[in-house]
Design a protein around this nucleic acid. Sequence first.
DNA 1: GGCCCTTTGAAGCCT
DNA 2: AGGCTTCAAAGGGCC
Length: 470
Amino acid sequence: MDVSAEIERAIEEMERGELLSTVWAAIDEILADTSNPPSPPLVPAELELNTHPQPVESQAEGYGACIPMMADPHMFEQQNPLMAAPTMYDGLLCQGDIIQPGHLYSQAGAYSQGQYLPYLWPEADVPTATAVSHPAAAPQPYLPYLWPVADVPTATAVSHPAAAPQPCNIAPVVKLSEGQSLRWVGVWNGEMLYEVIAEDHFAPPVSTAPPLNTSKSGKRKCESQQDENRPYVKKPPNAFMLFMKEQRVNVEAELNIKGIRTAAAVNTVLGRKWNSLTKEEQAKYYDKAEEEKWLHAQRHPGWTTRDNYGKKRKRQRKVKASASNPEEDTQQAKKLCVTPVQTAVMESSSSLTEAPHTKTRMMEPCDLQTVLGMEAPQTQTVLVQLPHTQTAVTVPVFDMCHLPQVYEVSPASWLDPPETASTSLASPGPLTLTQIESTHSEDVGGQVSPSDSQLKPPSSPHCTASAALL
DNA sequence: GGCCCTTTGAAGCCT
DNA sequence: AGGCTTCAAAGGGCC
């Protein structure tokens, strides 16, 4: 039986809800012919995994995009309790053959709007599963989730009476890249099987995610969307921005000023402080900036600063020449008009098989990571190892304090060693996801030695200790 | 509602 | 190639 064809046909003919239920029923039926009928993986009590499908579009994180949990960790409790639970992450971070949990980034230099979560999440604010309630009619969570394998040694089966066992609500999905995801389809010879699916096959109807960016700057209409269909993605911070982020509180306390142009005054002081730093001291921030840039490139394949160029400022600065000049007006208008087309081109080219080559795109040594897609926030990671490439990537999930298991992904029908990860992922067979080792939440806020990370972001000339964060 | 102010660095744009 | 412009953050002020 051609399962794929059948599923595809069903997808075309059915409504989403019907489709999902039917597909799952079909899969169950198919798999029932094998050794053991697959049942949804049991959820360890301490994991409290999300059991609902996630809106893929909400994963399109970005500073101003709609990744609610990025904006404020407390949103878990305020808007969707389920979000506090360890949830499968929709993107993959590859930083080495051994990938470290995203929570290892939890340290100074956090970004306030969730765009740079590795530095963002204050440990004290990390939501824990224990604080989570599971209402009977839980709202649709915003993000996909990673389902723990049924045979997780440390897993303790729990029942979720409130979570209706609807097939469409228990399908774990791992987002691979833009447009593709891994979905758990069952068990084959004792291994969890995942299939590559198009996102729209699993996309929920509407994202209820509130706007992420609540800052004043986030109110700008031009930042609300990159274009009609694409969320605005902000630039990664440079070294000085990271320095400001970290030192602003100190300088504000030192100055103890309020009122007129406080931020501008503080920035002036920060600028002086920055210039007074030694090269070695500055190198620390250049390192971070390189990491941020690298992560940004992974999360937003194809994105360049061009995408934002001319979209933010709506009127000329006072110091600039008068905009009364018709030519200047025309040029400004040009900048505002051409970008969507360019963006669309970039988007289409950032496929599995070919990625755009831009200054900000770093394909080496992590083609795989780029291919797998990074459009997601991260609060926890699990190890996903791709056997043929001998490369591992992380699958961040929600809740840094839990779900410490590390999983291995092995393709069930990965017959030929791929030339590159890109080619192999272009038409992969079902993948298996099994736990291979465990890590623990004690790592939160800790650092990992460079030897723990065999794949790292490209080092910058300033780079001296970036690996420690990865 | 949204830009200004102010800083440095990165990157795009223009000549 | 080199210079200019824009945007990253912050938040009160101002239009």
